[in-house]
Design a protein around this nucleic acid. Structure first.
Length: 297
DNA sequence: AATGGAAGCAACCGCGTCGAA
DNA sequence: TTTCGACGCGGTTGCTTCCAT
């Protein structure tokens, strides 16, 4: 007996959402608030799976979502957090309240992974360039030789209409106290960071290698400025447990309890770095400069 | 101008986790 | 304590657009 489907597959519509469907969904959420996704299709008449409704809201219709190009600071945060957390996109997204996990994941897979690959190739001796083992994030990738990065591909025309729908909700979000969407305000950075402090668990050596290899890449000096670094590295196996960050984020009333756990080193260095726009932006700009070196190509 | 490949991104699928009964 | 439903996450797929030939 397999797992039952999340919803009745018969008559369920798939594929891209239409503006009409978006309006129906947004109207419903305006009235009832997000959550209880199971009831959304039946109550709205949408021929969509509840999962699909949630995804559509979370990734596109939710107010406060920032679309378009990522800033150097955002890139730097993603690079650092990916090195620290691995492919925990939801956890990474919790530090970038205006970005969705899906968006970050896509951006990583399409842009940053390639950037970092080239950056690391440039940092290595020529004989090592192209050695897949040299990259923690290395994965099978066809067409790796292409240096043509399309950074400004235009989004579809409908994407702009979803933004409009999203914009319509801005006023409602401000006036409606019943929506507890922590990802939509700047405070969530602090709360997520605090949550991260609560979530230090043991992890494997791979994670540590990832961290160390990243540190080797560029900003050792920056990291060494932090007084917390020694503690963090010496522990060797302590890292944020990203799987709980969002839940902790939603329950940050309990943060104080967990902060009292003395066995866990503080992550203030991470927070400090993440909130230090100039440092991360500078790092990404440096990578960009490396990318532009003719010698690489 | 046509076409094939590459790139980007929206959406889906399957599994893990959590909480209520 | 166990079971089950709902939600959330990460990986993957497939469609659309762009670009080179």
């Amino acid at each position: 007996m397999g797992r039952p489907p999340c919803c009745d597959k018969v008559g369920i519509k798939k594929g891209p959402w239409t503006p009409e469907e978006d309006i129906i969904l947004v109207s419903y959420i305006q009235e009832h608030g997000p959550g209880n996704w199971r009831s959304v299709p039946t109550n709205t008449g949408l021929m969509r799976c509840s999962k699909s409704c949630r995804l559509r809201w979370t990734n596109y219709l939710r107010p406060g979502i920032k679309r378009g190009n990522f800033t150097p600071h955002e890139e730097g945060m993603i690079i650092h957090l990916q090195a620290l957390l691995g492919n925990k996109w939801a956890a990474i997204a919790s530090y970038l309240p205006q970005r969705t996990d899906n968006g970050i994941k896509n951006y990583w897979n399409t842009h940053l992974k390639k950037k970092l690959r080239k950056f690391q190739s440039a940092m290595e001796p020529p004989s090592m360039a192209g050695d897949e083992k040299s990259l923690d994030f290395a994965e099978s990738e066809t067409g790796a030789g292409s240096s043509n990065l399309k950074l400004n591909q235009t989004s579809s025309s409908y994407a702009s209409s979803t933004e409009n729908i999203s914009r319509l909700l801005q006023g409602w979000m401000r006036s409606s106290p019943k929506i507890n969407n922590n990802n939509n305000n700047s405070d969530s950075i602090g709360s997520c960071s605090a949550a991260a402090n609560n979530d230090l668990i043991s992890h494997g050596d791979d994670q540590l290698e990832s961290i160390l290899s990243f540190e080797n890449m560029k900003d050792v000096a920056l990291m060494e400025k932090s007084t917390s670094k020694a503690t963090f590295q010496d522990s060797g196996e302590k890292i944020i447990n990203p799987e709980r960050t969002q839940k902790a984020d939603n329950n940050n009333n309990n943060i104080d309890d967990n902060n009292n756990n003395n066995s866990n080193p503080p992550l203030s260095f991470l927070e400090k770095w993440l909130l230090d726009e100039s440092s991360s932006a500078a790092q990404v700009e440096e990578i960009d400069q490396m990318m532009e070196l003719p010698s690489i190509f």
